[in-house]
């Protein structure tokens, strides 16, 4: 495990902590896209099927269980918690995420890592993760004001994949020496989707102003 990978995983974990903190302390999920959260549940469930078939390390198993558990918990809060669900910005969360699921599934059938059920699902999860943030970004763009925790959540989520890019470069030269088209290109797309957000996030931070995305 290299420093980029660890930093990426910790940033990913921290983003989830920030989101759960927002939901549990403010009893509000305003500004958070339930569609994006549903996509993450699907991403983790389809990617971590290898929990049953392959063992890597205690760290690996624990992190996978945490990602599955927390994504389901966030989904549950937003969908079913008596107080939290009333703060859901339903009208603004209008992205048709089923199209993303269908598109990524077809892509995974056409270009899978390998032709088996688990490998097609793994590839599907990589493609879907790359675009899962789109409903959230659209929701942010429609929101008048973005609270700090929501802004930080999205920033950390983007930083995680950017750090993974560095991890892949590092591993390519030190360890694997193989081109890994599917995760690399998906990861590049995923990180690029945040470029606009990063720009406005850093600007608002430097100017000490509230974060706002132009429509």
């Amino acid at each position: 495990m290299n420093v980029f990978r660890l930093a990426g995983d910790m940033t990913h974990l921290l983003s989830i902590v920030v989101l759960l903190l927002k939901i549990r302390t403010t009893k509000s999920c305003a500004g958070i896209s339930l569609k994006t959260q549903e996509l993450y549940v699907l991403v983790f469930l389809t990617r971590y099927l290898d929990l049953f078939t392959r063992y890597f390390s205690v760290y690996n198993v624990l992190m996978k269980l945490i990602f599955i558990g927390t994504s389901v918990a966030i989904f549950w809060y937003m969908r079913y918690h008596k107080v939290v669900k009333q703060t859901y910005s339903k009208d603004l969360d209008s992205f048709r995420h089923y199209h993303l699921i269908l598109g990524c599934f077809l892509m995974a059938l056409l270009i899978p890592f390998d032709f088996s059920v688990t490998e097609v699902l793994w590839t599907f999860s990589i493609y879907l993760e790359a675009v899962a943030i789109l409903p959230q970004l659209v929701l942010l763009q429609k929101s008048r004001n973005i609270d700090n925790l929501t802004g930080n959540y999205v920033f950390l989520l983007g930083a995680y994949r950017a750090l993974y890019l560095l991890n892949w470069i590092y591993r390519f030269f030190t360890e694997i020496h193989k081109i890994r088209w599917i995760p690399w290109i998906s990861g590049l797309v995923q990180t690029a989707l945040y470029a606009d957000f990063f720009y406005y996030y850093i600007q608002s931070w430097r100017k000490h102003e509230e974060l706002k995305l132009p429509a």
Binding site: F113, Y164, N167
Partner: peptide, 10 residues
């Protein structure tokens, strides 16, 4: 098929 591919990533 998986050797050399870093499926140990999350």
């Amino acid at each position: 098929a998986r050797s050399g591919d870093s499926k140990d990533e999350l």
